[in-house]
Design a protein around this nucleic acid. Structure first.
Ligand SMILES: [Zn+2]
Ligand SMILES: [Zn+2]
Ligand SMILES: [Zn+2]
Ligand SMILES: [Zn+2]
Lengths: 129, 129
DNA sequence: ATTTAAATGTTATAATATAACACTATGTAA
DNA sequence: TTACATAGTGTTATATTATAACATTTAAAT
């Protein structure tokens, strides 16, 4: 089991508590009172947290979210739903989907070791507005 | 059928000719001899070209690629394979995959209108090195 | 011809991310 | 416990990616 360093723990905690994906500079702003002053300190922690699967990057938003899937030890098979109205992001944990994608074979013979899928649409709440 | 404006055509042509995804500022550098001098001119053309499905953005790379799928009129269901060694990117055109993803239903009841999928791994060429 | 929408040109600036270097803490193994 | 290796930190500077705001021009629609 991996033990987080001081900066990693601070930055993980703030992302984990956030109801929405957080951007790097918003994280920075929020941890300055804890002594983390420079972008690099944030980005280094983010890199590590992504690497070990504690957080994921939402590529289309340049934002970071805590892993909501306890079995997701590494960020190598990720899927998210993103509401284009309220920007709510949810990690999808669907074994049929992950099985389908993990077994997907390209005709070009490429061997995949990782994927990231982002669905866009309207969440239930925003649909009824 | 959509007719491209002058800047849109210039920028589409250079992306279409490129064997690899192009970044916005690399595009800018390459079209300066054609009179396009400012980032905004590039980004505006890119936005439009993405909107009409002539190009796609590779989110994990902040780069743009010409649509390799003639039936892809709008960028609302995209899938790519990305080689993490040589950075070669290929648009995946697989009807089983697109059918599966287009019909995918989240248990949260979210209605999806769009998705983007990026596979990562080693291409054939890089596997045998 | 008049109106409307789309595209352009330009300057400035915001937002996102990394390079380089010096230093400190932690774990491992002789 | 001392040496060594690996990971993490702090700091300054800078690179890269993207948008705001405003004036003007072109193309399309009525
Ligand atoms: Zn996860
Ligand atoms: Zn919503
Ligand atoms: Zn396409
Ligand atoms: Zn390759």
């Amino acid at each position: 089991m991996h033990t987080l360093s001081k900066n990693q723990q601070i930055i993980f905690d703030i992302i984990d508590k956030s109801p929405e994906p957080m951007k790097a500079y918003s994280i920075l702003f929020n941890v300055q009172k804890k002594g983390i002053k420079a972008p690099l300190q944030v980005y280094r922690a983010l890199d590590k947290l992504v690497e070990i699967g504690k957080i994921h990057k939402i590529e289309s938003r340049n934002a970071f979210i805590a892993c909501q899937n306890s079995s997701c030890q590494v960020s190598k098979a990720t899927a998210f739903s993103i509401c284009e109205s309220c920007e709510k992001v949810t990690e999808i944990n669907n074994s049929s989907l992950s099985k389908y994608l993990s077994n997907f074979k390209d005709k070009a013979g490429m061997k995949y070791s990782k994927y990231n899928l982002e669905f866009f649409g309207l969440c239930k709440k925003c649909t009824t507005k």
